[in-house]
Deep mutational scan, measured.
Amino acid sequence: NDEAKKEAEKLWKNNKSEDEIKERLERAGISPDEAEQWLQELR
């Protein structure tokens, strides 16, 4: 999970869309709710 979150953070810094980041997190096995929460922390 931490690995996926690091990846999400990297994508965020590269200005990827939130949808793309969420999709990537969900593919890594993170629930949509958790993915949404993680994005809010990044904002």
Score class of each variant (00 low, 15 high):
residue 24 R to N: 10
residue 1 N to L: 14
residue 6 K to Q: 10
residue 37 Q to N: 09
residue 11 L to D: 08
residue 41 E to L: 10
residue 22 K to D: 00
residue 32 P to I: 06
residue 8 A to I: 10
residue 31 S to D: 09
residue 4 A to W: 15
residue 34 E to L: 15
residue 22 K to Y: 06
residue 40 Q to N: 11
residue 3 E to Y: 11
residue 4 A to I: 13
residue 6 K to S: 08
residue 11 L to I: 03
residue 10 K to I: 13
residue 35 A to I: 15
residue 4 A to F: 09
residue 17 S to D: 09
residue 19 D to R: 12
residue 19 D to Q: 13
residue 27 R to T: 10
residue 21 I to W: 05
residue 29 G to Q: 00
residue 43 R to M: 10
residue 8 A to E: 01
residue 39 L to T: 01
residue 35 A to K: 00
residue 40 Q to L: 10
residue 42 L to S: 01
residue 30 I to D: 02
residue 6 K to R: 10
residue 7 E to T: 07
residue 2 D to E: 13
residue 10 K to S: 10
residue 25 L to V: 01
residue 13 K to D: 05
residue 21 I to R: 00
residue 15 N to G: 15
residue 29 G to A: 01
residue 16 K to E: 08
residue 6 K to N: 07
residue 32 P to D: 06
residue 5 K to A: 02
residue 30 I to W: 12
residue 16 K to Y: 15
residue 3 E to N: 09
residue 5 K to D: 02
residue 2 D to I: 13
residue 43 R to Q: 08
residue 21 I to T: 03
residue 10 K to D: 11
residue 43 R to W: 06
residue 41 E to V: 09
residue 22 K to A: 02
residue 17 S to P: 05
residue 6 K to P: 03
residue 33 D to N: 08
residue 26 E to D: 08
residue 20 E to K: 03
residue 35 A to P: 00
residue 43 R to S: 04
residue 2 D to C: 15
residue 16 K to L: 14
residue 7 E to G: 03
residue 15 N to Y: 08
residue 25 L to G: 02
residue 34 E to R: 08
residue 37 Q to I: 09
residue 39 L to M: 07
residue 41 E to Q: 12
residue 4 A to V: 09
residue 16 K to C: 15
residue 7 E to V: 08
residue 1 N to Q: 13
residue 30 I to K: 01
residue 14 N to E: 15
residue 27 R to M: 14
residue 40 Q to V: 08
residue 5 K to Q: 03
residue 9 E to N: 04
residue 27 R to F: 13
residue 22 K to I: 09
residue 14 N to F: 07
residue 23 E to V: 04
residue 18 E to D: 10
residue 13 K to E: 07
residue 14 N to S: 11
residue 12 W to L: 05
residue 28 A to R: 06
residue 31 S to A: 08
residue 8 A to L: 09
residue 20 E to Y: 12
residue 27 R to Q: 15
residue 12 W to V: 03
residue 21 I to A: 03
residue 21 I to V: 06
residue 3 E to I: 11
residue 30 I to G: 01
residue 17 S to K: 05
residue 41 E to M: 11
residue 23 E to L: 10
residue 43 R to D: 03
residue 25 L to Y: 00
residue 28 A to N: 07
residue 18 E to L: 12
residue 43 R to G: 03
residue 37 Q to K: 13
residue 36 E to M: 09
residue 6 K to W: 07
residue 7 E to R: 03
residue 17 S to G: 05
residue 18 E to Y: 12
residue 40 Q to C: 00
residue 26 E to C: 14
residue 35 A to C: 13
residue 33 D to I: 11
residue 36 E to G: 03
residue 13 K to Y: 12
residue 37 Q to E: 09
residue 1 N to F: 14
residue 17 S to W: 04
residue 36 E to K: 05
residue 21 I to N: 01
residue 43 R to I: 08
residue 8 A to V: 08
residue 24 R to I: 15
residue 4 A to T: 07
residue 39 L to I: 12
residue 30 I to S: 01
residue 18 E to A: 10
residue 32 P to Q: 08
residue 15 N to H: 10
residue 11 L to Y: 06
residue 28 A to S: 06
residue 13 K to F: 12
residue 4 A to K: 06
residue 27 R to N: 13
residue 31 S to G: 08
residue 5 K to T: 04
residue 19 D to C: 14
residue 31 S to C: 12
residue 1 N to R: 15
residue 27 R to Y: 11
residue 12 W to S: 03
residue 19 D to M: 09
residue 13 K to I: 09
residue 27 R to A: 15
residue 28 A to I: 13
residue 40 Q to I: 09
residue 28 A to Q: 11
residue 20 E to S: 03
residue 10 K to W: 15
residue 16 K to V: 15
residue 12 W to N: 02
residue 18 E to T: 06
residue 38 W to Q: 01
residue 28 A to G: 07
residue 23 E to A: 11
residue 7 E to S: 05
residue 11 L to S: 04
residue 23 E to Y: 05
residue 6 K to F: 06
residue 32 P to A: 11
residue 35 A to E: 01
residue 21 I to Y: 03
residue 8 A to Q: 01
residue 28 A to C: 11
residue 40 Q to G: 05
residue 17 S to Y: 04
residue 28 A to M: 15
residue 25 L to T: 02
residue 23 E to F: 06
residue 43 R to H: 05
residue 24 R to L: 15
residue 13 K to L: 12
residue 24 R to V: 15
residue 22 K to F: 07
residue 34 E to V: 15
residue 7 E to K: 04
residue 17 S to L: 05
residue 40 Q to W: 13
residue 16 K to P: 05
residue 38 W to Y: 08
residue 31 S to E: 06
residue 34 E to H: 04
residue 33 D to W: 12
residue 17 S to V: 02
residue 23 E to H: 07
residue 7 E to N: 04
residue 20 E to M: 06
residue 25 L to I: 02
residue 30 I to Q: 01
residue 26 E to T: 10
residue 22 K to P: 00
residue 18 E to H: 08
residue 23 E to Q: 10
residue 5 K to E: 03
residue 1 N to Y: 15
residue 7 E to M: 15
residue 31 S to N: 08
residue 3 E to M: 10
residue 24 R to A: 15
residue 34 E to K: 11
residue 20 E to D: 05
residue 32 P to V: 08
residue 28 A to V: 07
residue 5 K to V: 04
residue 25 L to K: 00
residue 42 L to D: 01
residue 39 L to S: 01
residue 21 I to D: 01
residue 37 Q to D: 06
residue 30 I to E: 03
residue 15 N to W: 04
residue 16 K to S: 10
residue 1 N to G: 10
residue 6 K to C: 15
residue 1 N to C: 14
residue 13 K to H: 11
residue 38 W to P: 00
residue 19 D to T: 13
residue 28 A to Y: 15
residue 2 D to M: 13
residue 18 E to N: 04
residue 26 E to Y: 14
residue 17 S to M: 04
residue 2 D to P: 08
residue 21 I to K: 01
residue 36 E to A: 10
residue 29 G to K: 00
residue 2 D to N: 11
residue 1 N to I: 14
residue 15 N to E: 04
residue 37 Q to L: 13
residue 20 E to L: 07
residue 33 D to H: 10
residue 15 N to K: 06
residue 9 E to V: 11
residue 5 K to H: 03
residue 35 A to L: 09
residue 41 E to S: 10
residue 41 E to K: 08
residue 28 A to T: 04
residue 8 A to D: 01
residue 32 P to L: 09
residue 14 N to L: 13
residue 30 I to L: 12
residue 7 E to Y: 14
residue 12 W to I: 04
residue 5 K to R: 12
residue 11 L to N: 03
residue 5 K to M: 06
residue 3 E to T: 10
residue 40 Q to E: 11
residue 26 E to K: 11
residue 5 K to L: 08
residue 28 A to L: 15
residue 13 K to A: 11
residue 39 L to E: 01
residue 5 K to I: 05
residue 6 K to D: 05
residue 4 A to Q: 07
residue 29 G to D: 03
residue 10 K to Q: 12
residue 26 E to Q: 11
residue 22 K to W: 07
residue 11 L to F: 05
residue 32 P to H: 06
residue 26 E to N: 06
residue 41 E to R: 08
residue 2 D to H: 13
residue 23 E to N: 06
residue 36 E to I: 06
residue 30 I to M: 13
residue 42 L to F: 14
residue 33 D to L: 10
residue 20 E to G: 02
residue 38 W to K: 01
residue 6 K to E: 06
residue 3 E to Q: 10
residue 11 L to R: 00
residue 25 L to R: 00
residue 10 K to C: 13
residue 5 K to C: 08
residue 18 E to V: 12
residue 20 E to Q: 05
residue 35 A to R: 02
residue 21 I to F: 03
residue 7 E to Q: 07
residue 5 K to F: 15
residue 19 D to A: 14
residue 41 E to P: 01
residue 3 E to H: 11
residue 5 K to W: 15
residue 21 I to P: 00
residue 1 N to M: 14
residue 29 G to L: 01
residue 39 L to R: 00
residue 13 K to R: 11
residue 34 E to A: 08
residue 7 E to H: 06
residue 20 E to W: 07
residue 5 K to S: 02
residue 4 A to P: 05
residue 20 E to V: 05
residue 16 K to M: 15
residue 42 L to H: 07
residue 38 W to A: 01
residue 22 K to R: 14
residue 1 N to A: 14
residue 28 A to H: 12
residue 33 D to S: 10
residue 36 E to P: 01
residue 24 R to P: 02
residue 4 A to H: 10
residue 20 E to A: 04
residue 35 A to Q: 07
residue 23 E to P: 00
residue 11 L to T: 02
residue 19 D to V: 09
residue 27 R to G: 10
residue 42 L to I: 09
residue 35 A to M: 10
residue 30 I to A: 03
residue 4 A to E: 05
residue 17 S to E: 05
residue 27 R to W: 12
residue 25 L to E: 02
residue 9 E to W: 14
residue 40 Q to T: 09
residue 26 E to M: 14
residue 17 S to T: 09
residue 17 S to Q: 04
residue 32 P to S: 10
residue 41 E to G: 07
residue 37 Q to F: 07
residue 16 K to Q: 07
residue 3 E to C: 14
residue 42 L to G: 01
residue 6 K to A: 11
residue 1 N to P: 14
residue 1 N to W: 15
residue 36 E to V: 06
residue 13 K to G: 06
residue 27 R to P: 06
residue 27 R to D: 12
residue 37 Q to M: 11
residue 30 I to Y: 08
residue 28 A to K: 05
residue 6 K to T: 07
residue 22 K to G: 01
residue 11 L to V: 03
residue 23 E to T: 09
residue 18 E to I: 13
residue 29 G to M: 00
residue 26 E to S: 07
residue 23 E to I: 07
residue 18 E to K: 06
residue 23 E to R: 09
residue 22 K to Q: 03
residue 8 A to C: 14
residue 2 D to K: 10
residue 9 E to K: 10
residue 42 L to Q: 04
residue 4 A to D: 02
residue 32 P to C: 05
residue 33 D to T: 07
residue 39 L to D: 02
residue 24 R to C: 15
residue 41 E to T: 10
residue 16 K to N: 08
residue 4 A to R: 06
residue 21 I to L: 04
residue 41 E to C: 07
residue 33 D to F: 09
residue 29 G to Y: 00
residue 38 W to L: 08
residue 20 E to R: 02
residue 37 Q to R: 14
residue 10 K to P: 03
residue 35 A to V: 15
residue 30 I to N: 01
residue 15 N to R: 04
residue 4 A to N: 04
residue 20 E to F: 12
residue 26 E to V: 13
residue 16 K to R: 12
residue 43 R to K: 13
residue 29 G to E: 04
residue 42 L to C: 06
residue 26 E to H: 13
residue 3 E to R: 07
residue 14 N to H: 08
residue 21 I to E: 01
residue 39 L to Y: 03
residue 36 E to S: 08
residue 8 A to K: 01
residue 33 D to G: 09
residue 16 K to W: 14
residue 21 I to C: 04
